[in-house]
Computed example of a mutant assay.
Amino acid sequence: MNSLPTAILVFANSAKQDLANKHILKGEQLFDALTQTTLKKAKRTGLPVFHFSDENQVGASFGERFTNAIASVFDKGFSNIITIGNDTPHLKTQHLKHTAKQLAMGKTVIGPSIDGGFYLLGLQKSNFTVAEFKKLPWQRFSLYQQISLCLQEEASELIKLPVLQDLDNERDLRSILSFSAGLSSTLLSLIVSLLNINRNIYATNQNYSTLFPNSFPYNKGSPALSFI
C-alpha cells in the first residue's frame, strides 16, 4: 500500500465534555465555537481532516485516547500527521500549511503552549511509537520538555513554532483578551460575555486598536517566520 500525504487530526471533545473538564463557567457555547473555528482553519489547508471527539476516542486516559487517535489516522495510510486541539484561538491556517511543508521535507514540528504542553504536533510516521507516546507525562507541565527530547532523538530536525496561549480556565480567557488581535469577532464576543464585561462601555472607553497591539502573542519562534 502506497503512503498517503499529510492528514490533520483535530483532537477535540464535545462542548459538553469540555465544560465538564475545564474551569470556564457557562463556556459550552465558546467551546463549540472553538471547535468549529478550528475545523474551518484545518479544512482551508486542503488536507484531509479527521475529528476525534469524546464520542469516538478509545482509551481510559487522555494519553491513551490521544495516542490511539494518532495511530488510527496513521493506520489509514498517511505518512505524516498534524495534530491539534480546539483550545488555541491564535492558531492559524498558515501554521498548518507551514507544518505540512516541513513534514514534506522530512522534519518534525511542535508548537509549544504557555502551560508547558503543546498546541500542535507535526509527526512523521517513523517518529511515532504507540508504547513510547503512552508513557509521556500527558496533561503535566513537563510534557513539552519530555516530548521535545523524544522527538529530537528520533527526528532529523525539530522545528519549533511560536509559543501560544491555550484556554483551560477563566485566567486564560483574560490573558487571551489582552492579545485579541487576530481573534474572530465571534470568539472575542463570547470571551467578553463570559467575563461579564459590558461591551458597550468597554468599546466606548477603550480603543481596541490601541489597547491590543497588532502582534502575534508570545512569539518565541524564529523571527524569519510570519503568520498573518
Score class of each variant (00 low, 15 high):
68 N>P: 14
54 D>Q: 05
150 C>I: 08
103 L>W: 05
205 N>K: 08
161 L>C: 07
70 I>Q: 08
94 Q>A: 14
146 Q>S: 13
159 I>T: 10
217 P>S: 09
34 L>M: 13
10 V>L: 15
63 G>H: 07
57 Q>G: 00
156 S>R: 10
88 T>S: 10
222 S>N: 15
225 L>S: 12
96 L>V: 03
207 N>H: 06
7 A>C: 07
184 S>L: 04
184 S>R: 05
204 T>Y: 04
90 H>V: 08
142 S>H: 09
141 F>M: 11
108 T>Y: 04
6 T>Y: 08
130 V>A: 10
143 L>R: 10
118 F>N: 06
197 I>H: 13
38 T>G: 09
102 Q>V: 04
157 E>T: 11
98 H>A: 14
125 K>E: 11
179 F>C: 08
203 A>H: 10
5 P>H: 15
191 I>W: 01
207 N>Y: 03
51 H>R: 14
113 S>W: 03
176 I>C: 06
131 A>E: 15
63 G>R: 06
78 F>I: 03
66 F>M: 02
28 E>T: 07
27 G>Q: 01
2 N>W: 02
62 F>M: 01
178 S>V: 00
162 P>Y: 11
137 P>G: 03
181 A>S: 14
21 N>G: 00
34 L>A: 01
178 S>E: 11
93 T>K: 14
73 V>W: 10
195 L>I: 06
38 T>D: 08
215 S>L: 12
47 L>I: 08
132 E>N: 12
55 E>C: 00
101 K>P: 01
150 C>Q: 15
113 S>M: 02
65 R>C: 12
184 S>W: 03
163 V>K: 11
204 T>N: 05
218 Y>V: 04
85 G>R: 01
124 Q>E: 14
129 T>S: 10
195 L>E: 11
133 F>P: 01
180 S>R: 14
107 K>W: 01
227 F>D: 12
122 G>Q: 09
92 K>I: 09
110 I>V: 14
1 M>L: 07
159 I>K: 12
163 V>S: 04
99 T>S: 15
1 M>S: 14
38 T>E: 10
180 S>C: 07
210 T>E: 13
